[in-house]
Design a binder for these strands. Structure first.
Length: 611
RNA sequence: GGGGGCGUAGUUCAGUUGGUUAGAACGCCUGCCUGUCACGCAGGAGGCCGCGGGUUGGAGUCCCGUCGCUCCCGCCA
């Protein structure tokens, strides 16, 4: 293989096959960098050696596929290329076969400048030839194998579950597959194998896993594709800690396969604390926490500044960003998303001018608050950017009206925390070059900040539908001690649910499940489902629960996201060979497409054009 | 569903206040070149300025619409 040639091979006969990555035609001598999966090697065509071979080599162009037969030669000292692993040798060719020619590609795998997304996706087979993509796909393979091996060694069985299954109206939109044999009926592609894996527990396969494709027909993001791969697992009789150990074990194996030794026993944090300290349920621990600096102001000051005294005043610290110019302060504004009554006080200078005492207190308090920070030594506090997010004086007048207003973090407070949490991340991304926190240090303990977020609320209130929804999913078990509040005070019920978070990305989400039919029914009730409804949607499952279901629980992690972070990529598209665009299209295959009328007739489907 | 960014040569981009024949780099083609490795040198070809409409004496540039790519909010049990 091209990339494998080494000094030790000098003198050997060799055949290299691959693509012409670059050619350098010097007249009587032609150099070609030949590329395959393993790397590049220089092959030499000399007119002196063979006029016919040299003549043929003159026809070579980028991306031609060739076989070069010759002798591996140690390069002269002054012609060694230290920039490539094969740079000490070259293949002196005495026979050249052109296996295939190539049209001029729209872009070259060797280009330093990246073509735009549209081009890359349309000509994905060329984009995938690039080193970076070859590396990412190889990394994905290694990670998947490591996880399989680890889970298998821990006694887990990899068991497949159907792709054509039943639509469940809860949750994400389903991708539907029409049935020809049952006209008018549809299968759904699984959003996850949730019910199947629970059924497997009921079936006695007490440790299950699967690296499995899941499908959700929702709008995309850089870290969301309509089809994505989960590491799905479930086990019988576990405490949450058993699940966490398992996850930490396979993540350690996966990161090891990628060359990183991570420390296990990830820190744990209650959902409430995550929201209060970071304003988000997936905190990026690399960045400083939020600080409530309400007590740094006097009551009069708060009034003067039109700040709501009953709501937190949150300081966002972004290290080493320094003071912002007038223009930069304007640039921040679009980053801010107000969740309801929240307002941004981007001009900290104004507070320093008018309320110097408060400003000094804020600086002190913010710097002292470094709960989970481990490596930001700020050179001096002048270097930090401080932005305040506050509640408008008139906001949250009706706060008691909300069904969740008795929670530890009230909905009105939550709006401020959430707004600040989003801005905190947005600022850090915008000024990443200045604070350098996102740059890899080579120390896994700093580069990869894992976290378990636990004790999520069981239900979220849907303002639009005026009803409670399952925060995780309706098969999640409530805390034992909250069981009595299911009917009386659903807002206060905590779930035995947990997320594993890495650097602000939710890697996975799981829970201990309900294993008793009566409790499952109560949950469906709490979600506003009648007996008839729950029976028609989940009857088979409720029935299964009645035949000796062991306690069980599990989790599912996004393989794509894990690989994305390991690859240092900004988008899932960089680690998925054939991804879809933001509009869920495959630009290479040109999917989806309309289908022939005959096909539709066969399925008993008519198309209604939307206005 | 909403908001932001982008769309000009094969590719990546520049294009001033609306003003001659729309530029650069890389790639491509031709020629020269025996140690290059992002080879070099000389010459050349290559443009529906995403698409449609409007304003204007005149539009790559301004306005409206539309399509595509992208990021974010909503959404993703």
């Amino acid at each position: 293989m091209c990339g494998a040639l080494r000094l030790a091979d000098a003198g050997k006969k060799a055949v290299l096959m691959g693509w012409v990555n670059r050619r350098r035609d010097l007249g009587q001598i032609i150099f070609v960098d030949l590329r395959d999966r393993t790397g590049v090697a220089q092959v030499v065509f000399s007119a002196e050696l063979s006029a016919t071979v040299h003549e043929k080599a003159e026809q070579l162009r980028n991306e031609f596929v060739i076989a070069a037969l010759g002798t591996v030669k140690k390069r002269d000292a002054d012609t060694i290329n230290p920039n490539i692993p094969t740079g000490e040798v070259e293949l002196v060719v005495d026979e050249l076969r052109i296996l295939n020619v190539s049209k001029q590609p729209p872009f070259l795998p060797s280009d330093t400048m990246l073509a735009n997304e549209e081009m890359r996706l349309k000509y994905r087979y060329i984009d995938l030839r690039r080193d970076a993509m070859q590396f990412n796909i190889a990394l994905r393979h290694k990670v998947a194998i490591a996880i399989r091996d680890y889970l298998s060694s821990q006694g887990f069985f990899e068991i497949e579950t159907p792709f054509m299954t039943r639509s469940t109206p809860e949750g994400a939109r389903d991708y539907l597959v029409p049935s020809r044999v049952q006209p008018g009926s549809f299968y759904a592609l699984p959003q996850s194998p949730q019910l199947f894996k629970q059924i497997l527990m009921i079936s006695g396969f007490d440790k299950y896993f699967q690296i499995v494709r899941c499908f959700r027909d929702e709008d995309l993001r850089a870290d969301r594709q309509p089809e994505f791969t989960q590491i799905d697992l479930e086990m019988s009789y576990p405490q949450p800690e058993r699940v966490w150990e398992t996850v930490e074990g396979f993540l350690a194996a996966a990161f090891k396969a990628a060359g990183h030794e991570i420390k296990i026993n990830f820190p744990r944090m209650d959902y409430d604390d995550a929201m209060r300290q970071y304003g988000i349920d997936k905190p990026d621990l690399r960045l400083p926490a939020l600080t409530d600096v309400r007590d740094c102001f006097t009551s009069e000051e708060l009034q003067t500044l039109a700040i709501n005294q009953d709501l937190p005043v949150l300081a966002i610290r972004t290290p080493k960003v320094g003071e912002l110019s007038r223009k930069e302060r304007d640039d921040i504004k679009p980053l801010f998303v107000s969740k309801g009554g929240a307002r941004v006080f981007e001009d900290f200078k104004r507070i320093e001018n008018k309320h110097p005492e408060a400003a000094a207190k804020i600086r002190e308090k913010v710097r002292a608050n470094a709960t989970f920070e481990i490596h930001q030594k700020t050179a001096g506090d002048q270097d930090d950017l401080i932005v305040l997010v506050v509640g408008s004086a008139q906001s949250s007048a009706d706060k008691d009206a909300h069904p969740a207003s008795k929670r530890k973090v009230t909905p009105a407070e939550m709006a401020i925390y959430a707004s600040a949490g989003l801005l905190r991340v947005a600022l850090a991304q915008k000024y990443a070059d200045r604070h350098g926190i996102f740059k890899k240090t080579g120390n896994p303990a700093q580069d990869y900040r894992f976290l378990w977020v636990t004790n999520f609320p069981m239900f979220e209130y849907d303002e639009a539908d005026k009803r409670w929804m399952a925060a995780h999913h309706p098969f999640t078990s409530p805390h034992e001690e909250d069981m009595d509040k299911l009917e009386t005070d659903p807002a206060m019920v905590r779930a035995l649910a947990y997320d594993v978070v890495l650097n602000g990305t939710e890697l996975g989400s799981g829970s201990i499940r309900i294993h008793r039919q009566d409790i499952q029914s109560r949950i469906f009730h709490a979600l506003g489902m009648t007996d008839e409804e729950s029976k028609s949607r989940f009857g088979f499952f409720l029935e299964a629960l009645e035949y000796g279901t062991p306690p069980h629980g599990g989790i599912a992690l996004g393989l794509d996201r894990i690989v994305m972070i390991l690859a240092g990529a900004e988008s899932l598209r960089e680690v998925i060979p054939f991804p879809k665009t933001a509009a869920a299209k495959d630009l290479m295959m040109e999917a989806p497409t309309p289908v022939a009328d005959a096909q539709l007739r066969d399925l008993g489907i008519g198309i209604v054009t939307k206005k």
